[in-house]
């Protein structure tokens, strides 16, 4: 009798053990950072999602260029300010990003952005006089740092919009880890971080088509990665038949107009992916691939205006196209060295 009973008891014990693996996902969505935030977490304890929402909104209060009381706004208005530890750290990180990308990413490009009417005011094409008067203001070397005190020279102004979302996703991931949440999906208006897995499999991340047809152009299966896309297909205006996007080239003062329709950067750090996606978009194809050759610690998906796409070899196996006929190039890092 005992020998017959044992297997069934064993099964019952195992069943209970497996049952403890039961899982549920919770979702929170809200407006913040001038965009729509979606956070899905597996087995979030108690108020982790509320803490996440608070984290995002706190950063918005500190980093916004338009909200009164934000440290960045105060710095822009007074020209010099001692920043809080947190914001100072982000500032220093951002400046190093500007340096690393040789100015393709430039957090002081705000005066130009304002001139084109993106952020506040009417969108318009500035006159060439206006542009030439503003260009000297732009340049991250206009920011001087002593400890946590920052000074803006030459009337330059800051906007951390190109890096803030990525930075915040990193903080959210850290919050989740501290609260025992291993699997989560964070999307700050399309600025994505996928932590862990979804039901045991990698997260399936789609890249929006920049050609205006509302579907995903391609997708990548990922785990524990940040995915950030830069493009001008959503925020732009038309004047006299020409299209002007919202990403201004800090060197020329005009919106970027090169082979890229969108640039997606994939990596382990949200801040760097955010910074690089803007920087590579500004650099254009040749310089971007050169940069990859030198610094290749990330993956990318470059969608060209002609509809073709180039990807780094690291994501080759996890990558899929919506349309099998899209011309695809896989770039090896060694080619570019």
């Amino acid at each position: 009798m005992k020998k017959r009973l044992f297997p069934f008891v064993f099964i019952c014990v195992l069943f209970c053990a497996v049952l403890c693996g039961c899982t549920r996902y919770e979702l929170t969505e809200f407006f913040a950072l001038d965009t729509f935030v979606t956070i899905t977490a597996e087995k979030p304890n108690g108020d982790v999602l509320k803490k996440a929402e608070k984290l995002v909104k706190d950063y918005e209060d500190k980093l916004s260029v338009t909200k009164d009381g934000s440290e960045i706004k105060r710095l822009n208005e007074s020209g010099t300010l001692t920043l809080s530890e947190e914001v100072a750290a982000l500032m220093k990180l951002s400046l190093s990003a500007c340096e690393r990308t040789d100015g393709a990413l430039d957090i002081t490009v705000y005066p130009l952005v304002k001139a084109w009417g993106f952020t506040v005011g009417e969108k318009k094409v500035p006159s060439s006089e206006e542009l030439s008067s503003l260009l000297p203001l732009v340049g991250y070397e206009n920011v001087t740092v002593t400890g946590n005190a920052f000074t803006l020279e030459n009337g330059t102004e800051l906007d951390l919009g190109a890096v803030a979302k990525g930075y915040i996703t990193d903080k959210l991931v850290k919050l989740f880890k501290e609260n025992d949440v291993k699997n989560a999906l964070i999307s700050l208006g399309g600025n994505v971080y996928v932590a862990g897995k979804y039901g045991g499999r990698d997260w399936n991340v789609g890249i929006k088509s920049p050609f205006g047809d509302g579907k995903a152009f391609c997708g990548v299966k990922l785990s524990d990665k940040a995915v950030v896309t830069s493009g001008q297909y959503q925020r732009f205006f038309e004047e006299n038949g020409k299209v002007y996007g919202h990403i201004i080239d800090p060197a020329t003062g005009v919106p970027v107009d090169n082979e890229f329709s969108s640039v997606t950067v994939i990596g382990e750090n949200g801040f760097w992916c955010d910074a690089l996606s803007t920087a590579l978009f500004v650099m254009g194809k040749d310089k971007a691939l050169e940069f990859y050759g030198e610094h290749g610690d990330f993956d990318f998906i470059l969608i060209m205006k002609d509809g073709s796409v180039a990807i780094s070899e690291g994501i080759k196996d996890a990558f899929s196209l919506a349309d099998e006929n899209t011309p695809l190039t896989v770039i090896k890092r060694s080619d570019k060295n």
């Binding site: 297997p7 064993f10 099964i11 195992l14 069943f15 053990a17 497996v18 693996g21 899982t23 045991g200």
Partner: peptide, 21 residues
Amino acid sequence: LLILSLRIGIGNVFAGSVTGL
């Protein structure tokens, strides 16, 4: 029945999913 039960129980523990079970 015995073999079936063991296969279901142990097999799904190895597969690691409750819904699978």
